[in-house]
Design a binder for these strands. Sequence first.
DNA 1: CTGAAAGCGCTTACAG
DNA 2: CTGAAAGCGCTTACAG
Lengths: 365, 365
Amino acid sequence: MPKTRTSGTRGTTPESAALKGAASLNGRRATINDIARLANVSKKTVSRVINQSPFVKDATRAKIDAVIQQIGYAPDPQARGLAFRRSFLIGLIYDNPNAQYIVNIQDGVLDALRGSGFELVVHPCDRLNEDFLPGIRRFIERQKLHGVVLLPPISEDQTLAQALREIDCQYVRVASVRLDNTSRSILCNDREATGEAANYLEALGHRRIGLIAGPPQYRSAHERALGFTTALEARGVTIPPEMIVEGAYTFDSGVACAEALLARRPRPTAIFACNDEMAAGVYKAAYRLKIPIPEELSVVGFDDSPLATRLTPSLTTIRMPIRDMGRLAASKLIPVKAPDEVDTAVVTRVTLHLIVRDSSQPPKS
Amino acid sequence: MPKTRTSGTRGTTPESAALKGAASLNGRRATINDIARLANVSKKTVSRVINQSPFVKDATRAKIDAVIQQIGYAPDPQARGLAFRRSFLIGLIYDNPNAQYIVNIQDGVLDALRGSGFELVVHPCDRLNEDFLPGIRRFIERQKLHGVVLLPPISEDQTLAQALREIDCQYVRVASVRLDNTSRSILCNDREATGEAANYLEALGHRRIGLIAGPPQYRSAHERALGFTTALEARGVTIPPEMIVEGAYTFDSGVACAEALLARRPRPTAIFACNDEMAAGVYKAAYRLKIPIPEELSVVGFDDSPLATRLTPSLTTIRMPIRDMGRLAASKLIPVKAPDEVDTAVVTRVTLHLIVRDSSQPPKS
DNA sequence: CTGAAAGCGCTTACAG
DNA sequence: CTGAAAGCGCTTACAG
């Protein structure tokens, strides 16, 4: 076997290996019994320390903590889970085609889970499959999940939420609107954010504005369209019905919707697409029709996906703090170390912001 | 509490609930003891059936299978794991900024895991962090992972592979080149694929071709550049050194590299970027310089990311079967039901293909 | 505040 | 081919 290079990389800590040997575990991982023996207490008392029971004398706790620290002991999650009848796994359940969104949420969830002893298990699913609900139930019950994070659009599914309550599984919904009064949620104010976009376009001087809405099954689609039109109305600008078209949050639907809007006369001087994918479709349609962006058409999207900066010109859009949302969601599910970090609120709101780039400017004349 | 809508969605199977009641488990999940009692055998024999031991009489097995089926019993992974000293979790370990790649791999891994009783735990990490190796070891040892899938670039890290062998954790590497003779791997022939791209551009008539390579820490960067230049050489076209620039697989580096290449005289008539992110950077640079794609500049990328079709004109690029790669990787880690599905090969190769779109055409004159 | 016993749901030797 | 005992590493009542 070839010699392995080790330079420039920290390997295992040799001290901990030595200590394990010193404690005569010879290679074996330490158990609660080892800690109990070394600290001269019963395993039950060690268990109390692990589980932060208040009924342990400070001196005893300190002694046990020292041994745990020294040995580098960590309780076995499977054994603990078996005794607790509950695992130390958090599930991420989603039916969402946006990869960047998924990965950002995952990163956020893992931010919260780091050091907590919990791990993240992913479970994509298909709302249209007849095994949708049973599949999720099997997953949760079999793994005895400690809790789950639900992403839109299935976070909006009341039947799912009801099923989770039935099997007594705690959950956090990520959504753009409050769905009930009891479910813990991370809420994005999509409505306010699209209002900001509307105000921005109006302030630039746009009056003939096209709107590409999302599919009506998504609550966000409704929120975004409503926020946009309401803010414009408040400034005295009305979007006529023929300037509002319904897309599917996909690139292709964006192309088709933009082609429809750009065929209207007078042509819109700006288009707000309710996500970046559809905004990219507007670029495509404008290119085909030889309508330069932003000179003859301003475009605003929603998501601030990587696409937004890759497009030329770069896309003015709305940024969601997705990673934060993942972190906040997971924080609601796990017990925290520092009591001041506890997030007991049922609903946590996050703020979105308009990011102005190169795809928007005042209309020509 | 409001009545839950149930129309149009299949809920839990009422039969199984009834059966659980009939078996007098009153709400409690069935255990191996219940199955043993109902089938009139010892729990050990049930265990043998669960673990597919050959030493069970066919009639006994059939009887037990019937009860398992009827009750809807599934063994508790935590209890099983505790007894086995090993979990039923597969880890996905990566340090990769490409969200679409991650999600596609995840989907593929889950394809393979479906119905196997294994679940996927994700573990992004940072190769440059001093806790990189210790962090991965802790993760694997604490969770007693059944195996892990490693994605590039950390799949190429020999120190990591060595550490995994030390802790006796099986792993599968996803890579673009064979890294040793023993590690199980999923191999992409990046070299062959970029050769295909080179042949394509040469056949179109391009002779002044620029190459934006990847960062040298990535093996794929080397493979892609080598495959491209070698294939061109074989057709009598040499890329002069000033027409090869090194990018970082990022959009910004693509912009910078393209600006450098497009400042050369005579200007290249085609640029091959070693990934789509950098190809998008070429679009940006060309736009700034008012060089129309594909009329005055053909562009070819690598990845077939979503970006490829969102860009205008759509990007000619190389498609990797990422989801398949994930599925194949996971298949090497888990025991399979049907013996004919077993993948015992150490190395499995997948094939990449050039996808011709609108960003490439013959050079002008 | 601390401990000895029993149990979580499974498996591994060891018998027969 | 099948089973009774002991154990995986933890926790929950129950005592003291």
